[in-house]
Structures are given as C-alpha cells and as structure tokens.
Design a protein around this nucleic acid. Structure first.
Lengths: 335, 335
DNA sequence: TTGAAAGCGATACCAG
DNA sequence: CTGGTATCGCTTTCAA
C-alpha cells in the first residue's frame, strides 16, 4: 500500500517530473502553488521515496561499506562510532562488516560490498591481512574496484590512506620512560606484520638510540593485541628479564598483564613503570591511573569519512598521517 | 564499464531471462552447455549484479537496519558484534545507526531506515526514549511501518521483543549479597524509566522482601548507566548511608565508582561488597575480580536476528525473555 | 512552467 | 528448454 511518485502525481494532477522536481527541491521554476500542494500531499500521506529506485536511477547509494576487524575491541568500537556519526551527519549510511580479524572473510566481504552497490569502502584492515606479508596486501588492495580509504594502517602503495604516526607513538612512549630513568625497558608489540606493530617498535628503537641505550632483543615481546597475549607475555617478562618498565603497544595487552599479576597476587604497577597505547577510557579508573599513548580516534574516524567523500567526488589520491601524544598519568615513576 | 546481464546475454547469444535463470541457479531446465557457457562468461568478466536493480525488482534488500544508542558502550558494542555476525552468516547486511542515546535522532533515523528500503529493523532503544514515559514509547513503536524487533527492552505492547529477565537479575544479585550476610545494601540503578532499570530495582525489592529485610528508599540511587554517574553516586553513598554492600545495575557505573575511590585514595572493594551488572570482560582483570550479573549478549544478538528473519518470513509476533545468571567472583565477601 | 518518455538493471510471467 | 516483455519507482533529457 505504499505511496509512489506516480500516485502523488495523479492526486495533484501533475506529472511525475513535477513531483520529482518539487520533492527534491530542484530549482526548476514550478509555481509556488503547486509546490505547496505537492509537498502537502506527500507529507499528509507520509510519502517515502523508494531508495532502490533512486539508486538505480542515479547510480549512487549514499552508502559506505565499513569493514572492521573486531567491533568488540574498544579501539575499533570507538572508531566505528566516530565513523558512523560522521557518515550520518553527511546523509550517508554505514554498511558495517565485522571480519573477526580473518582475512579470507575480509576479502570476501569487500567483494560483496562492491556488489551491494556501496559508493565506497572504508577499510580498517585486519592484522591477519598484514601478517601475510606485503605481496598479499598489495594484491588484495589493488583488486578493490571502488573508491576506498585504508584506515589505521599504512602501506607504501599510492592509495588513499589515513593513519596515526606510530613511529612517533613508539618514540614518545619510550622517551618518557627513559626520561624517568629507565634503561631496561620491555616492549610488547604486535606480532610480526601486525598493523602498526613494527612502526611502534621502530619508534622504541629510535628513542633508545637517541639516548645511547643499547637495544636488547631479549626485551622485545610480541602478542596479538588482546588480553590473552598480555597474560602470556607478562609471565615471560617476569621470568626472563630484569626490566624496570614495560611499554605495552596496546591497552588490552596491558589489561591482560594486570589480570595475570592479580592472579599471582602481585601488583603490576608496584613492580614496573607502565605505559600503554590507545588511551582507552578505562585507564583512568585504575590506581594509579595508567599513562598511555593517546590517539585521537574521533579525528581518525571523521577525517576518514571526509577523505572518503572527497575521494568519491574528486577522484584524487589522499594520504594523511595523524599525530599522537602521550597522556602521562601516574603509572610511570622515576626510577 | 560495468557488465550487465544484457551484455552477458548478448555475448552468449541468449536472452536475459536465460542469464538470470542461470546466474540465480533457478531450477529451470537450461541445457548444461549453456549453463556452463554463461557461467564462464560471467566469471571471466567478473560480473557483479547490481543490487539496486535486484532490490527494486524483488522488493527486498537483504539489509536489516540496526539502531543502537551508543556503539562506544561495551555492552552495546558486543551486542552489535553478535548481531552483525549473525546477520552476515545468513547473507544479510547490517545498516547500523548510532543514536547517541537521543530519542529525536532515533526516531528520525528509523524513518530514514524505512525509506532506505531495509527489510526490517532491529531496534535497541535508547534510554532517552523510555525515560519519556510509556505514551511516547507506544506512539513511537506503533508508527514503525515495517517488521521490527525490540531488542533489550520490554513493553507490554503486543510487539516482537527479546530481552533479558531483569527482575531475575536484580533478584539474584541482591540475593547473593543477602546470603553473605548483608542487610544494608545500596543499589544504583538507572534513572526513572531507563531501560530495565525499574525491573532490576523490582528484583532487588523482591529479594529483600523474601528475606524479611525492610526496604529503605534512602539506599536507592539512580544514574545514567555511565562512568560519570558512578562517580557521583559513590560519593553520596559514602556520605549518606551505612551500606555494607553495593549493587551496581551496570558495570560502567561501577567503574566510575572505582575511579572516584581511587582518587580519594580509598579502596572500593575493601569498604564494600560489590556486585555489578553486564559481566563486562574487564571485571576479571581487577583485584578482586568483580562479581556481576551475566547476560549472554551473544545469544541476545543471534536470537534477535533469528527472530527478525522469522518475523519477516512468517509475519508472526514473537516474544522472548532470556535468563540471566550471577557470575560470582571475589568482590562479594561474607560480612 | 510543465509533461512525455527514455532509461537504470534486474525479475518473472506468459508464450512458444 | 528459451525468449519477449511488462514491471519495479525514480531521474533526467528534450520538447512544448
């Protein structure tokens, strides 16, 4: 029983063209009288345009596909929130796909999104993808036959991408620890190839170097950016190192370490100076409040959307790198 | 340059009908030879069907609108993950809208979703809606001219809905505290009308009553289910009550209270027996690990999706209430 | 200032 | 087994 433009045209005794013009506020000089009349009929009958028809005719869907590795992870969920709000404000819809950090699924879903007729794709890539090496990454990305923006990851390819300066993040975090007198600094970064993991490690090394501290590969640990990994790695750090400080390359791993320490009836913060990464809002509920590298996720999300729409409109290639800063709270203490 | 069915038909020297039949695997008895030929052409040329056209012709979009109050909140983000995974597994897409717990927006977005041509809506309502009273709720819901399922909230209306038994949750939590000898139990529930808030309070009262403990309205506090509210209410509880235990009706408020106590250099868990609600995974990283009412969010999400598809298919009215349980860890101690 | 009609890319009914 | 063709609801060009 849904009302169509044709119905309205009939009711108003005008053509469909006129109705279309009026309802889309086109600046065709239709008499004010008709305009009012048509608008009233539409409103009274609660007319709702059929967007499939609109899409078919205009060849655009006002929909952006958003591919995310894991909605459950606080970092991604906040990013998603920023993206979805930014899209909404611009009259776009977000078709959101959760890949569970599985590249096969990711790849399949991207294809489906394309077929689904989205105008573009915001791709927040899985760690699984990057850990497969740059050949796979390149192959995958160049197969995407639609405007897309790579979000929160970096490649050397000439494609649209926006991300944080992770080298800087790693550097700043390490620098802070060094300033406070630490020399034996353990780092838990992401597994080989994981998104941003190597950059954060690079920043760590750079800070050591600038301060003439020898790099010790025994202080480098890797995890999957999840609670479990924090759990496992803290055990190794206690057992195998003399570290006085730990740099966790994401907060979840830090929480995992806290958990483990609690189980062992030890206090993570008494034993080590700690700095995390992501500045998750949970950090401020602890005692001491946890210092962390702060990335402006809101900006990442909204800038990504802006870039996406720009790409769709102007067919340009954009690259953007956002600065990060350290939110120094209480968990880093003078040695 | 995109390939259409027409093109394929031409290339294969058959009609569009045949192509459509073949590509959709309809059981029309087309000769195997042609089937192979057509499929090969489609594959070789990387044919991608235009879904707007399909939707227009079939009048279904394989898309479900999902309206959520706040993606950033861990409870909702986990629910969203469950929903989006369940939809994906069934070949549906999720059009996700974040309303920032604002009913005006919620209402607008639902209308847009309808116009967008979704097949149905999963509505996880805002607290803002329910706090406006049942007249508004009723008006709003009965205006939705599309199959929809109300998720994580309850109304007396004869509509599709799925939620947790919050009376039971309130009861179980309180019961546990009473069993451990507590009689002065403060409760921080949601503000008047907030989703599930009154049910949890009802369960609290029921437990008191069954144990012949007088209800004391001075022990009842209300918040907005966020960190800030926990912050504010714990201050009042310390100052104005002699409570020995606190029942937080969601974990975020509990975290807020922890934060405040840390700032005051006090320990929440030393001073009070604590139980939360939602069983957020963060609960297990604390010392002591936090007891909490556990709701199976995954099941809520996937059951909601199943119900949604059932509703679309069979035009029935479903109602479902999921049981909850208490995950008793370490934060409730014998008095 | 307004209308007729040609698409957009599929589906599905009806013939043959 | 296969093909013509109307149809879905809207946009847009061209004429009037």
């Amino acid at each position: 029983m849904k009302l169509t433009m044709k119905d309205i045209a009939k009711m108003a005794n005008v053509s469909m063209t006129t109705v279309s013009l009026v309802l889309n506020n086109k600046k065709a000089r239709i008499s004010q009288k008709k305009i009012n009349e048509i608008k009233k009929i539409a409103a009274d009958n609660n007319y709702i345009p059929n967007s499939s028809a609109v899409s078919l005719a205009t060849n655009e869907s006002k929909t952006i596909g958003v591919v995310v590795p894991n909605i459950g992870n606080p970092f991604y969920s906040l990013l998603l929130k920023a993206i979805s709000d930014a899209l909404k404000n611009r009259g776009y819809y977000a078709l959101i796909i959760n890949t569970n950090d599985n590249h096969d699924d990711e790849s399949q879903q991207v294809q489906k999104l394309i077929s689904r007729g989205v105008d573009g794709i915001l791709l927040v890539p899985s760690n699984d993808l990057f850990s497969q090496g740059s050949t796979v990454v390149t192959e995958f990305l160049k197969d995407i036959s639609l405007p897309f923006v790579l979000v929160n990851a970096e490649t050397k390819l000439k494609i649209n991408q926006i991300n944080f300066d992770s080298v800087e993040g790693g550097f700043l975090a390490t620098q802070l620890l060094i300033q406070k007198g630490h020399k034996k600094i353990a780092i838990i970064t992401g597994e080989k190839g994981y998104v941003n993991a190597d950059d954060r490690l690079k920043g760590y090394k750079k800070a050591l170097e600038q301060n003439h501290i020898n790099f010790d590969s025994n202080l480098v640990f890797r995890g999957k950016y999840d609670i479990q990994s924090g759990n496992e790695n803290i055990t190794k750090i206690i057992k195998d190192t003399e570290a006085t400080a730990i740099f966790f390359c994401n907060d979840l791993m830090l929480y995992g370490a806290m958990q483990k320490m609690n189980q062992l009836k030890l206090n993570l913060f008494d034993r080590y100076s700690i700095i995390g990464y992501d500045d998750t809002f949970f950090n401020e509920i602890f005692n001491p409040e946890v210092s962390s590298v702060k990335q402006d996720v809101n900006k990442l999300g909204s800038d990504a959307v802006i870039m996406m729409l720009d790409v769709i409109k102007n067919k340009v290639v954009n690259q953007s790198k956002l600065r990060v800063e350290v939110n120094d709270r209480e968990s880093v203490k003078q040695l």
